[in-house]
């Protein structure tokens, strides 16, 4: 047992690994990874939440698995090994969703399968799990997964609220407002709405944390 293995689970370093991707290095809005699925599933809040949880689960367990076997993987075929690990996790998540949340899994359609090619997962495996111990890897996966889920939830919330006046399927915009001439914004349910909401979200977030990207 080396000294570093004895460090407490909630040490400052682990907490930092967990917290950073929530805002400063958010996988979606700062590192620009995994945008595809973030847009496709967010027309309602519920599928966005389920997708966030599914991706977090896949990242955490693939990070853990790859980190455990990181010294056994030959460098040349590491991508194939990582892909196999991720694909296995995704199949597990897909089967569980089909068994316990069939409606949502129908709604997510092919996007559960597309977690395999979600760049966040492969990106974290390459950048973190291959060079770190299992426990920090779990925290890294959890942080990145939740950072992703957080953005998904906000985009899903805005699109469902403005697009159909509902939250999680419950009507929240009162009927009196409709009588006064308020209309649901149909554009929010369509593709352009997703792009624009995410664009605006990035604007707000970057104004708050002062991150500027130069071409």
């Amino acid at each position: 047992m080396s000294v570093s293995e004895k460090e407490p689970i909630l040490s400052a370093k682990n907490r930092k690994t967990f917290k950073q991707p929530l805002n400063e290095t958010n996988p979606l809005t700062i590192q620009v990874l995994g945008i595809c699925s973030a847009l496709a599933v967010t027309s309602q809040l519920k599928p966005s939440l389920v997708m966030g949880i599914a991706v977090t689960t896949v990242i955490v367990f693939s990070n853990l698995t790859v980190s455990v076997i990181r010294n056994l993987i030959p460098n040349k075929i590491r991508i194939i090994v990582e892909m196999t690990v991720v694909a296995t996790m995704v199949i597990l998540v897909d089967q569980i969703l089909k068994a316990y949340a069939y409606e949502v899994s129908k709604q997510l359609s092919i996007f559960v399968g597309l977690i395999i090619t979600n760049c966040i997962v492969l990106g974290r495996l390459e950048a973190f799990a291959l060079g770190n111990k299992p426990i920090p890897s779990i925290f890294d996966g959890l942080g990145n997964g939740l950072g992703y889920a957080f953005v998904l939830a906000i985009v899903g919330f805005c699109r469902e609220l403005f697009g159909s006046g509902k939250i999680l399927g419950f009507q929240v915009v009162p009927q009196s407002l409709y009588d006064a001439g308020y209309l649901n914004n149909g554009l929010m349910m369509l593709a352009p709405g997703a792009f624009i909401i995410l664009g605006l979200f990035i604007w707000v977030q970057r104004t708050l944390n002062g991150y500027v990207e130069e071409d």
Partner: peptide, 10 residues
């Protein structure tokens, strides 16, 4: 704050 990714999304 909108440079790069933000404006591209919009």
């Amino acid at each position: 704050a909108l440079r790069g990714l933000g404006i591209t999304m919009i």
